[in-house]
């Protein structure tokens, strides 16, 4: 297959994902409300009683909220469509096209959710970040990494019956290295350190993202057959 055809296929598939999401707007609104209410719960439990929180807690809490939002929003990417319809797509499109379109779509979705989340988080819990651009970089790289890892895991978990439990069990351990690097990078951003101190972290995170996407690309055809 030549590359223009692949691009066309990808475009069509991503368009399909967006349409599907737009038709079920309650799910999207639900995700936004999920992140808003989680932030509000944190606000209630941390900021109201005591005098704010330590910067480290602020940072870690944000990433944990983001992780749970990601798991919740991506779990449905393989389960929202019925098996019959999935079979239909599979006869039309290549597995590589499907996994790439799902990954790209989930990246866009999670980016939107995490930026909204960060905005609300800053409004409620204050802004101790000194280098906001670097923090945003961390959020972008994190969203890419989370969604590519979780898309593949969602594909695996959707084949079993207890999808949501499996999703958490399977994804948390393999996301932990990424999460710890992200927390380090965003901590550097909070302390307002120079960019060149964080090149290592950024490079490793990008490398992990690349590994995950490549492996998903290679393995998904096997997942699709079952």
């Amino acid at each position: 297959m030549d590359s223009t055809l692949i691009m066309q296929e990808l475009k069509a598939l991503i368009e399909k994902e967006i349409r599907l999401e737009w038709r079920q707007r309650y799910a999207l609104n639900g995700m936004i409300l999920y992140i808003v209410s989680t932030v509000f719960v944190c606000y209630m439990s941390f900021a109201l009683k005591s005098k704010g929180m330590e910067p480290i807690t602020w940072n870690t809490l944000f990433w944990i909220i983001l992780l749970f939002t990601a798991v919740n929003s991506i779990t449905k990417s393989f389960t929202q469509e019925r098996a019959g319809r999935q079979l239909y797509y599979y006869t039309l499109a290549s597995p590589q096209g499907i996994i790439l379109s799902k990954i790209i779509y989930n990246i866009v979705l999670l980016l939107a959710l995490s930026l909204i989340g960060l905005f609300i988080y800053i409004i409620f819990l204050g802004n101790p970040v000194q280098n906001l651009l670097m923090y945003l970089t961390a959020v972008v790289i994190g969203a890419i990494g989370f969604s590519s890892t979780l898309t593949m895991v969602a594909g695996i978990a959707s084949k079993a019956e207890n999808t949501s439990t499996l999703m958490a069990v399977l994804s948390f351990p393999i996301i932990l290295p990424m999460l710890s690097m992200l927390i380090r990078l965003s901590k550097n951003a909070m302390d307002g350190l120079e960019w060149n101190t964080s090149y290592d972290e950024i490079l490793i995170l990008l490398a992990i993202d690349a590994i995950v996407i490549t492996i998903s690309y290679l393995l998904f055809p096997f997942l699709w057959r079952s």
């Binding site: 990424m178 490398a207 992990i208 995950v212 096997f222």
Partner: peptide, 16 residues
């Protein structure tokens, strides 16, 4: 098949 997929995926993230 599914556990083989997860095995490869997990190994690739465990090594780094």
């Amino acid at each position: 098949r599914l556990s083989a997929i997860y095995n490869i995926f997990a190994f690739a993230t465990f090594i780094p």
